[in-house]
Design a protein around this nucleic acid. Structure first.
Lengths: 345, 345
DNA sequence: TTGTAAGCGTTATCAG
DNA sequence: CTGATAACGCTTACAA
């Protein structure tokens, strides 16, 4: 009679059944799973076969209860502005799940409960219920209540986005300033001497860093640089601001944007002024390398984030902390990649 | 006497401590939590106070082990084409986590392990390890191996996206065809008699439904309608196809797109032909209502998906199944909302 | 190397 | 309405 594939039954099998099938004790099965080197190869083989045939997987709840390890990492989803969702969330989450999975960990998603939307309460709940071994935070702000809270609680955590100088340095981040500096060098190499920058939400640390990186590198190269919106600006629409810049005395021949969506505003402004986007007219660059870049004409030069490397580094550092390894004194800054397309080259 | 494992108790209190503090037995604390009506009000009050003061939350692993309920739903993240990620994932996930949280459930994210990327293996693992009570699937294809697999396994599941006629009807979906029909009616109401449609990836059921809805409603209203890319097309670029359409004999005065990104291609084509986007030139509509719509000029008319309602319906149906309620014989189709902006009105 | 015993924190059963 | 006792399935300590 031909055996079918090992069908995982709903009434899943237990360690006891595996032990019986292999003719050993429960302990030996447990050892075969958690400390294979302590089991005689011959026995190990027999146990492994039984495990495969029964489609056995240890019950994670029982394992967690006994061992204390949840083998699960919590990801606190940022509370987005629904009008301007984080353009990276989907890609970052996929990378995070893969990175965690590669280390045998799962990812539990959680969010502050809507009424209060208090992230610290959400963290407390998850931690008190002992559902995760550690936390991954993202979109860290300047004075971030979440960081202060988890640090005070003593919950193992890492963050995508740097923490303040007085706080634990369990972070991984991209070099936002260096990324924009690379954009500036790229534009300078194309012969641009007068360049503009369009930012937004400058209270966000990563946005502030992009602007600063732009201005610093432009200054270093002796370029004429104007960054919008200026601190004095009374919040005009982005397109209007760029148009005014393009009509001004020192009309830039290139405009870098703090995000791909902002770059779209630049495209609109350039065209509204009767100019063309591209090296021959006004060069434009974005940030994030979203699919948008490939649907624009010309294609939008943009800064790609190493999401898989970021996720792997975060998971690696978090697991290191859980294993009690020495804590790195500093955060980790990862390089970005400039993807040049028709809009600037 | 065997010692317990080295358990990093982050000051997490147990039911025992609460019982001592309240001067009752463990069982009474458990009852106060799970069946308050069985506890005398006066006692309940005392227990509740102790719980609050100690910040007690039941250990979810212990609770799961004992009760069998994981209070966790698994979400199988679609394996996106990184070049064209699901534009809804971030928003849908947020809605799903909120909906689950409102019912006291958490969401565990998982993905097929990269080497094989076999979703059925990933499902087997999660189910065998008893980490979730049920599954939420998304982006259901015509002959979807995941649906067949979970149905055969008997794992409780629901899907965002309809399943085939021979399969269980545990789905919630939007009315893709009705959504496009509404777009067509909107365009007809603006006086357009010749309209075009730009689709892509027509092997995806939702994309096929949008095209079909477009053609059916246009026919019903007696409009002249052309849908791109045609079945005979040798896959020209979307922009080139639309440009050809705009140069053709029956030049459409409006073009609907199957997604916001495709609408961007339409914008480019319209402008490349020296025409203007908008009611005066060529009207354009998109699908998904991404942030992109508000960054385009004119703003892009688009179809908004009721993500919160979808998520709530999915969670509601899944929990209903878990409670053993009678299964609805049919899936649930939810209406979309047409958001009209400058591109078409 | 393997088997025995204990107990992780909780809830279900059933006695008072 | 409350409290003792027994599991849930697993891993650790220790004895064989």
């Amino acid at each position: 009679m031909p055996e079918g594939p090992p069908r995982p039954r709903r009434g899943a099998s237990t360690i006891e059944e595996v032990a019986r099938a292999a003719g050993v004790s429960r302990q030996t099965v447990s050892n075969a799973l958690n400390a294979p080197h302590r089991v005689r190869p011959e026995t190990l083989e027999r146990v492994t076969t039984a495990i495969r045939e029964l489609g056995y997987q240890p019950d994670q709840s029982a394992r967690s209860l006994r061992s204390g390890a949840r083998r699960t990492l919590g990801y606190l989803a940022p509370v987005d502005d629904p009008l301007d969702p984080n353009p990276l969330m989907a890609g970052f989450l996929e990378a995070l799940v893969d990175a965690a999975g590669a280390e045998g960990r799962r990812v539990l998603l959680f969010r502050p409960a809507p009424p209060t939307a208090d992230p610290t309460a959400a963290i407390d709940e998850l931690v008190a219920a002992r559902q995760v071994d550690g936390l991954v935070l993202a979109d860290v702000l300047a004075e971030d209540a979440r960081i202060a809270h988890v640090a005070r609680l003593g919950v193992p955590f890492v963050s995508f986005g740097r923490t303040g100088p007085g706080e634990p340095q369990h972070w991984v981040d991209i070099a936002n300033d260096a990324a924009m500096a690379e954009v500036v060098r790229h534009l300078a190499a194309q012969g641009h001497r007068r360049i503009g920058y369009l930012g937004a939400a400058e209270e966000l640390p990563w946005m502030a860093a992009r602007r600063a990186g732009f201005l610093a590198e432009a200054h270093r190269l002796g370029l004429t640089a104007v960054a919008l919106p200026g601190a004095e600006a009374t919040a005009p629409s982005a397109v209007a601001a760029v148009r005014a810049l393009l009509r001004g005395p020192d009309r830039p021949t290139a405009v870098a944007a703090g995000s791909d969506l902002l770059a779209l505003d630049v495209y609109e402004a350039v065209r509204a002024e009767g100019l063309a986007v591209g090296p021959g007219g006004v060069a434009v660059t974005g940030f994030h390398d979203t699919p948008l870049c490939r649907h624009l004409h010309p294609g939008l030069t943009s800064v790609r984030l190493p999401l898989r490397a970021i996720a792997a580094a975060l998971v690696g550092r978090l697991l290191g902390r859980l294993r009690g390894e020495a804590e790195p004194a500093a955060g980790l800054e990862l390089p970005t990649e400039l993807v040049v397309r028709g809009s600037s080259g």
